[in-house]
């Protein structure tokens, strides 16, 4: 796994629920057929009301119309990121769009498990509110060795909560790899 994740920030507010991450009408596409699964990237975060998409300015779609990949690799969220349904299509959509990590104050339980156990994106928790400090488009560097996020555009560094119990699963890749490495399956 990458220990340093570099990329641009995409900033969102609190309580980004799974219907905003991937609206329910899109849950029909295959997740295993790579060509069809690209649609999850196309519609990732398309349910976020546009004025709250890409803060602080807003009005910035995560993925441009008729595109499949995002320009933003690190999502900055507020509290309760991923609340709502259990759809694993949500973290999958973010991964397919090209996101590598989320840095948010807190997560809903099922979404958090899905990120980790499915190995889609790395979910970091912040120690302070960051979605009012970082701006969409800021150049970031997420350091998994040091548990810090560097904002190269603003020349700031933020401490993050260590991944703790879930780090071995993230390092293994997903829950199945972890279970195989530990002779559980």
């Amino acid at each position: 796994m990458e220990k340093i994740i570099k990329g641009r920030a995409f900033v969102l507010g609190d309580n980004i629920d799974t219907d905003q991450i991937i609206p329910a009408e899109h849950l029909v596409y295959s997740l295993s057929d790579p060509e069809e699964a690209k649609n999850y990237g196309r519609f990732a975060l398309s349910g976020v009301p546009l004025n709250q998409s890409g803060l602080p300015k807003g009005g910035i779609p995560f993925v441009e119309e008729n595109q499949y990949l995002t320009k933003y690799q690190i999502i900055i969220g507020g509290s309760n990121f991923g609340c709502g349904s259990s759809r694993e299509h949500a973290p999958f959509a973010l991964q397919v769009a090209g996101a590598k990590a989320i840095v948010a104050e807190s997560y809903a339980r099922i979404f958090y498990r899905n990120c980790v156990d499915g190995g889609f994106v790395v979910p970091y928790e912040t120690l302070e509110k960051l979605n009012d400090k970082i701006e969409t488009g800021d150049q970031l560097e997420l350091d998994l060795n040091e548990n810090i996020l560097r904002n190269l555009s603003k020349n700031e560094t933020y401490k993050l909560r260590p991944l703790g119990d879930i780090l071995p699963i993230i390092e293994a890749g997903n829950i199945f790899e972890y279970a195989r490495q530990n002779n559980m399956i």
Partner: peptide
């Protein structure tokens, strides 16, 4: 594999929702 799986808790049981990967793990183990 549904967040509202918690509904069954009305029967004095433990019930909760999970994603597809966790469900696939349960399906096999």
């Amino acid at each position: 594999t549904d967040s509202h799986t918690c509904t069954s808790g009305a029967f004095g049981m433990f019930s909760t929702g999970v994603g597809n990967t966790d469900a696939a793990f349960i399906l096999g183990t």
